[in-house]
Write a protein that binds this DNA or RNA. Structure first.
Lengths: 126, 126
DNA sequence: CAGAATCCGCTCAGATACTG
DNA sequence: CAGTATCTGAGCGGATTCTG
């Protein structure tokens, strides 16, 4: 274990790229105004550890700006950067797509599940 | 274990929605022409199990059409549906975004890692 | 309040072996 | 060739505990 300090900056191993199940949710919540840590926590029900991890990666990649206020108790605010705002637009596009196409997807799933997943079968080869 | 058959249609539990690390790769490979199972396998280096799972979910959701030819040896082709083609466009948009913004992201990462992840600190509260 | 550190269970993806 | 069945290891996300 570390001998002197245990701050994050001591660890030599940088976090690997994460897909981030909660990433889209977080940046969506940051759309309209900066938010504090526990505000995000309450709105999402996300665990503290995962929220921290998600926010750190967003910060690290330049999508979110973290600002600490040296008050007691401490106050930390997260807000979208310009780059983060672009990511938000992108992610809204993705969400819109799946929302628009949801009926087709559900219909396809019903067909697939009803047929037990049996594919088209052709006897002739093209 | 199953008493009589072990075909997929026997299992009552349907697969849950998967994020699919390889999904984008696969539909990109299907852009220009239908492809056979092992062709996809060779081009990606993806394991056979994961390829099957990925293709099945794409098929189930209506993005990919699977066609079996009753020949010996068997021949199975995968191709994009119209819906799949829309998903392809979307995913190309996503890839383009991260490609375009890669420099900004890498710059942000360097700043973050160099500073040990220390945030902006403000002494006054707004 | 905003985290860091730890432990833990689950799911995902790869490796392997076997079939129609 | 195109799968299915199984085992296994790694990583993610949650719960809990502790601190500045």
């Amino acid at each position: 274990m570390s001998a002197i300090s245990n701050s994050r900056s001591d660890k030599g191993d940088r976090p690997k790229a994460r897909s981030g199940k909660w990433t889209m949710t977080i940046i969506t919540l940051l759309r309209d105004q900066p938010q504090r840590f526990n505000a995000l926590r309450r709105q999402t029900g996300i665990s503290q550890k995962t929220l921290t991890t998600t926010l750190r990666e967003l910060e690290r990649n330049g999508f979110v700006l973290r600002t600490m206020f040296a008050t007691i108790p401490p106050r930390v605010e997260y807000e979208l950067t310009e780059l983060g705002r672009e990511l938000l637009e992108l992610s809204e596009g993705v969400r819109d797509f799946f929302q628009r196409r949801r009926p087709q997807m559900e219909a396809a799933r019903e067909r697939f599940d009803a047929s037990g997943g049996e594919p088209e079968i052709r006897l002739n080869h093209p």
